[in-house]
Design a protein around this nucleic acid. Structure first.
Lengths: 126, 126
DNA sequence: TATATTGTTATATTATACTATAACAATAGT
DNA sequence: ACTATTGTTATAGTATAATATAACAATATA
């Protein structure tokens, strides 16, 4: 299961963030075929958004056959194996890093300090 | 000067993309203090958006003292130097780093990937 | 069979984003 | 002084995003 997280500062619409996190999860294998996603209501509560917003994300992914939904049962990862274009993935990493750099720099932190801080957290992980 | 680009597929509002690119330009040093930005009309034409959209971006950055504008003259990079107490400095970096690491990981990016991306941007700089 | 759960649909409302167009206001240059 | 240039403001219209709330429809389960 994914650890969903919305970034209100990014400017990216919430339903788009949900869509992308699921797409990336499926593409990377973090989300496996047949796996059940949180219910629209549960995810809405968790992310503190309206259930319609989650519903919109799920619906759009169902249209793309990335998800399979059944009323009364739930929403599941479909068997369509998707690929995220390398460029799209890179763009996403780009924008996250740019935002990180911009914010940190505005507080007077250097790129080195940012890198060091990140590296500190790498240790102890796989 | 920045090579402004808008990505309509990203879902990020145009004025936000303009803001983000200027903020990053300042953070990375590509935009230097006192440097003049394109006029609202020129940038609007270049990006094929309405001049109000550019104006909105500039205005917001002026409120944040990142830009300085003068009617009749133009828009320029301001001189902002922010100080935070040394005692809070490490905590601040901590929280910023945690935040962006968790955002990145929700898309399946590792700390290592972020480090690599940040390092890539350092190359060629002092 | 009754009930709870799940996704779905609908309506109304608010806020934001963007466009088009026009006019206004301050400044620079001729 | 005049004019062009620059940012600014205003109005109107369209589309999207998100919320709140309610009800409906299919499924699972007690």
């Amino acid at each position: 299961m994914i650890d969903f997280k919305l970034d209100p500062k990014s400017g990216v619409p919430f339903y788009r963030q949900i869509i992308d996190q699921i797409r990336y999860g499926v593409a990377s294998g973090d989300l496996k075929v047949g796996e059940q996603l949180p219910t629209v209501r549960a995810l809405a509560v968790q992310l503190k958004v309206n259930l319609n917003t989650v519903g919109k994300a799920y619906r759009e992914l169902e249209i793309q056959s990335i998800l399979e939904t059944q009323q009364g049962t739930g929403t599941f990862i479909g068997s369509t194996n998707i690929q995220i274009p390398k460029s799209e993935r890179q763009n996403k990493l780009d924008s996250i890093c740019s935002e990180y750099l911009s914010i940190a720099s505005s507080y007077g932190f250097s790129a080195e300090e940012m890198v060091d801080e990140l590296k500190k957290r790498q240790r102890g992980k796989t």
